[in-house]
């Protein structure tokens, strides 16, 4: 009898130690990534200062000049454009699914969207390369008489917004579903229309959830690599308009991979890009968390 208790306690004890170890490994791993990226990007920071790296647009491997300004601008342009399209569409779709649709339509559409949010990005990239790129090129030529190959910033942002839609929609629907039914009923019983109660009540009650969904979609679009690398045209120059080829930070890493091994300083420069990405992810995450806490205090019901 006593033995059994001992063995149970021993098991519990061991589990405690092992779990502690796992948790410690995560922390270790996180800092390992950070330290590795920093130490590996030290050579290029020594050569060119950080400000020079970020704000110069010269990219010359032979002269050992690495400026990321074009890629940064490209990233901003692509991400913001895609969000400009994705946010209104996804919000309206999510409200329709959650508030207006009948339950059979609701289950079928949301099951479909669930399946879609798992489709790999290369598939999106391939389809965009096949049809969207020629289509954009043709439309631009016929209607606006602008010469473009179709591999340009606008194509990349359209593809990205289609990719992020399922993710954002399913998260917004989830947070709308968490709002208690009574809030809706009270608002409707006071004579508000459905849209008024959505606008005045639900947006506030589900606000923090909606905002974190949007930020998550933003992160998805921002870090997306392969699809963008396939269709953006990969020119390391500041895009003149949305119809010219550009480069984003992640696609810069992938596209320069071939030369990466041979030139140590370029390798270091590209690792510096990864470091920038990582830091931006950390900052956006903290901002999202802060906004979330603030808003859920302000809009408490």
């Amino acid at each position: 009898m006593k033995n059994r208790i001992y063995s149970r306690l021993l098991k519990d004890h061991m589990a405690s130690h092992i779990l502690n170890l796992f948790a410690f490994l995560i922390v270790l791993f996180f800092f390992l990534i950070l330290v590795m990226l920093i130490t590996k990007s030290v050579p290029v920071i020594r050569k060119n200062s950080i400000a020079e790296l970020i704000f110069s647009s010269k990219w010359d491997t032979d002269a050992k000049q690495f400026g990321f300004f074009p890629a940064i601008i490209g990233t901003l342009e692509v991400t913001l454009l895609s969000m400009l399209f994705a946010i209104p569409v996804s919000m309206l779709t999510a409200i329709y699914i959650s508030e207006y649709a009948s339950s059979s339509i609701k289950t079928s559409i949301s099951a479909f969207i669930d399946v879609l949010s798992g489709i790999p990005s290369v598939v999106f990239g391939l389809c965009a390369l096949l049809y969207l790129v020629p289509a954009v090129s043709m439309v631009m030529k016929k209607i606006f008489s602008i010469q473009t190959t179709g591999m340009c910033v606008i194509t990349a942002s359209l593809t990205l917004s289609v990719m992020t839609l399922p993710v954002i929609i399913s998260l917004i629907v989830e947070s709308l579903q968490l709002v208690p039914k009574e809030l809706r009923e009270v608002s409707l019983s006071l004579g508000a229309t459905k849209w008024q109660s959505v606008k005045k009540i639900l947006f506030r009650a589900a606000g923090p959830g909606i905002i974190s969904a949007i930020l998550l979609g933003f992160g998805r679009a921002f870090g997306e690599t392969m699809a963008v690398a396939m269709i953006i045209g990969s020119k390391n120059k500041i895009p003149v308009s949305v119809f010219s080829a550009g480069e984003t930070l992640p696609s810069l890493i992938v596209n320069s991979f071939g030369e990466m091994m041979s030139v140590p300083l370029q390798q270091s420069a590209l690792i510096f890009v990864a470091l920038i990405l990582f830091i931006i992810v950390m900052v956006t995450n903290s901002v999202a968390k802060m906004i979330n806490i603030r808003l859920s205090q302000k809009w408490r019901y």
Binding site: I26, F30, L216, G223, P250, I253, L277, F278, T284
Partner: peptide
């Protein structure tokens, strides 16, 4: 943070 990290990193 790790969840939001782009896979390329």
């Amino acid at each position: 943070i790790l969840w939001g990290t782009p896979s390329i990193i």
